[in-house]
Design a binder for these strands. Structure first.
Length: 696
DNA sequence: TTTTGAAGTCTCTCC
DNA sequence: GACTTCAAAA
């Protein structure tokens, strides 16, 4: 139970689709061919909006109708959202039988398999999962231990080191090649970097910690290193289906090979024009290499778009036609009519925000529900101004992607307490907790952890540690808390209530620290209330902690519980998080060179190409209405000599603009007077000066 | 020597 | 607005 993936959340009522008797009735010939295709490797190249997911789901349904047991089908996706959506749609199509289809992201399925089979591979069953931040923290600790932390300014930053490590695991490129290609300036440190990676690997093992990359790597290794393990793991499934295959990397291809060598019943779908995860080691050529990895594979191409109007496709096709390398064809639709997409010129961010809010309301009044509209942007923080405006105007919205609830420092702090009680060897969490205590800094924390390691991380070791006088009292109350947590946590049987009371116990100590640290702690304290509420939904502390790393609730909205679908809310999303989704009306904001494409991608041709595909993904989300907005003036923009950041995105060149219509925002807010040019009647500043006795 | 406060520097995407 | 770096204080 506890080990089941959490991605599938069955709703109470599963209504079978009325037309599920003939699964191919609603499909075009190409789609139907993919659905009814037999048991050999199958590659479906499917452009945006061509019914890719629909085809995949129908294929699952078809397999079930052919008598394949639902729980012997594995459906792999790339993002959590895609996994949840796919399984929900499968259920709608074939009814509750699909409830037993196994599915999730590669990482979550890898996690489940590791809990199940890890013991046979020498991995303790109670390992803790580290998120990216934790992994970096751990590497930082190793860096200190190896004496690489200081003294050398030119040594790569921990962030870069972790990136290199992850890249090495996911792309299977040797370190020296990676260094040569991506960061030649660090070549001279290759020896130290290798030593650091070795230390990191050992450190993880000794602390019983597993990072995201391990979830994939260990899965692959279990399949490859032991024929009997492979038989047991691969033997769990008769059919494997993979969505968004263009976003897989070599490690994942290896996993699929291991899972499918026996039966070769593998279906993958994807679109090379929508490959946007190169930063995670994916390469769109992977999808084209599929026939080589799985000889005898059949390829089916879907090019008819069912989503967008022709004018929207015209624009998207021109944008992607500028790509250096491209394999999929132009999309076409039989949908008639539709307005040309808008290219909206705004004076500045404020006007861009006003335009979006006004237009959203306008569409809403004309009958488009809020949930049929989305605002897309390159990076999470770019919607800040809009969020404030929407809140002011009381337009309900939910935000996808961007900074996550669980990445907030205070949430991680509280979780760290739970994690050390769960896994006393969790060095990352120990460090975090110790640094919170007054009188303890980096060096004392390291000394204390070394002492605990001396005692083999005995849970009682902490109580007997010596601390500086200043930290005495804090040490005592922390020791007390940890004993208490172990006591509470021991009775795992009573489930979520226990996790919640753990959190309450932690807060008895932590709230004071938090209040001390921040001027306005209210919002953060509220976050912790949320965390407690979320915790009640999990059967045990172990499941709770693992789920948080792999399937984190995105924050406020998820908390509302099952009612989220009933609320009519506007979606704000990063383009990455929007992939695979569609809306009647889509706004793409910040179409400014340096923002989209991001300035750091401009110099590297490959990265620029990925940005282009990202823009393509953004544009192809729209069904009926599409508006691309760009503010001409960017306040507080970077003072870079190389680029000016108030130019229209380079992806919207002349030819592209010819498929759009220009819209200039009428400045309705012109009533707001510009700063007075006349001499002030009074001088407020002068009146305020000296108010606090100071003279500055 | 270690901690802590303050000024200064950027800001991605996801599991 | 969060994290890093630097200098002063304990």
């Amino acid at each position: 139970m506890a080990d089941e993936p959490r991605l599938y959340r069955p709703r109470d009522r599963a209504v079978p689709h009325p037309g599920d008797r003939d699964l191919t009735a609603a499909l075009n010939p190409d789609q139907a061919r993919a659905v009814t295709f037999g048991d050999a490797p199958l590659l479906v190249i499917a452009g945006a909006g061509t019914g890719k997911t629909r085809t995949l789901i129908h294929r699952v349904a078809g397999l079930i109708e052919r008598g394949v047991a639902a729980d012997r089908i594995l459906l792999l996706t790339f993002t959590r959202r895609a996994a949840a959506e796919m399984l929900a749609r499968a259920e709608r199509l074939v009814g509750s039988a699909s409830a037993r289809v196994h599915g999730g992201t590669f990482h979550s399925v890898g996690h489940r398999l590791l809990r199940q089979f890890g013991a046979a591979a020498g991995l303790p069953a109670d390992f803790t999962i580290m998120d990216q931040g934790d992994a970096q923290d751990l590497m930082q600790l190793g860096r200190g231990a190896l004496g690489l932390a200081k003294s050398n300014k030119r040594f790569p930053k921990t962030e870069t080191l972790h990136w290199l490590y992850s890249r090495h695991i996911n792309t299977e490129l040797p370190l020296d090649e990676l260094l040569h290609r991506d960061t030649p300036q660090f070549l001279e440190y290759q020896e130290q970097i290798t030593a650091l990676f070795a230390d990191y690997t050992l450190r993880k093992q000794e602390r019983n910690l597993v990072d995201y990359d391990d979830l994939l790597l260990f899965w692959a290794l279990m399949l490859e290193a032991s024929p009997s393990l492979q038989a047991r793991i691969a033997g769990l499934y008769d059919h494997v289906l993979v969505d968004e295959y263009q976003d897989t990397n070599l490690l994942q291809a290896r996993i699929l090979r291991g899972m499918c060598t026996a039966h070769r019943k593998l279906t993958v779908v994807g679109d090379d024009a929508q490959s946007i995860y190169a930063f995670r080691g994916a390469h769109f050529r992977n999808i084209l290499d599929f026939p080589r990895h799985f000889p005898g594979a059949t390829m089916i191409t879907l090019a008819q778009n069912y989503r967008s109007t022709q004018p929207i496709l015209d624009l998207s096709n021109v944008v992607i036609s500028r790509a250096e390398e491209r394999y999929t064809k132009d999309l076409f639709t039989k949908r008639e009519g539709g307005e040309r997409p808008w290219l909206v010129t705004a004076k500045d961010e404020a006007q861009q925000t006003r335009f979006v809010a006004d237009r959203v309301l306008q569409l809403y009044e004309s009958g488009v529900p809020l949930h049929d509209m989305a605002v897309l942007f390159r990076a999470g923080y770019m919607s800040a101004d809009l969020e404030i405006e929407l809140a002011n105007r009381k337009i309900p919205f939910e935000k996808w992607g961007g900074l996550k609830f669980l990445e907030a420092a205070h949430v991680k702090d509280v979780l760290a307490f739970l994690r050390v009680s769960e896994n006393p060897r969790d060095e990352v969490s120990w460090y975090r907790i110790l640094m919170l205590l007054p009188g303890i800094g980096d060096s004392t924390a390291r000394t204390m952890m070394a002492a605990m390691q001396e005692r083999s991380w005995d849970p009682d070791a902490f109580t007997h540690l010596l601390t500086p006088p200043k930290a005495r009292e804090a040490h005592r109350s922390l020791a007390h808390l940890l004993r208490q947590l172990r006591g509470i946590g021991a009775a795992d049987a009573s489930g979520g209530a226990k996790v919640a009371s753990d959190i309450t116990a932690v807060r008895a100590l932590y709230d004071a620290i938090l209040t001390e640290k921040y001027d306005r702690p209210e919002a953060r304290l509220a976050d912790l209330d949320q965390l407690r509420t979320i915790a009640t939904g999990y059967p045990s502390r172990t499941t709770f902690l693992a789920a948080l790393a792999l399937d984190p609730p995105s924050g406020t909205q998820d908390l509302a519980g099952g009612s989220e679908s009933e609320n009519d809310t506007l979606v704000l999303s990063t383009v990455h998080s929007a992939k695979g989704k569609e809306w009647k009306a889509v706004f793409v904001i910040w179409a400014v060179d340096g923002w989209f494409p991001a300035s750091r991608s401009i110099e590297d041709p490959d990265e620029l190409e990925e940005e282009r595909r990202l823009m393509y993904v953004a544009l192809t989300r729209a069904k009926d209405e599409l508006a691309v907005v760009y503010p001409m003036q960017v306040y507080g923009s970077k003072r870079s000599a190389d680029y000016s950041f108030d130019q229209l995105s380079r992806f919207l060149d002349r030819g592209v603009r010819a498929t759009m219509q220009r819209v200039v925002v009428e400045d309705t807010e012109a009533a707001v007077p510009a700063p007075a040019a006349t001499a002030p009647e009074i001088d407020l500043r002068a009146l305020m000066r000296g108010r606090f006795g100071g003279t500055s």
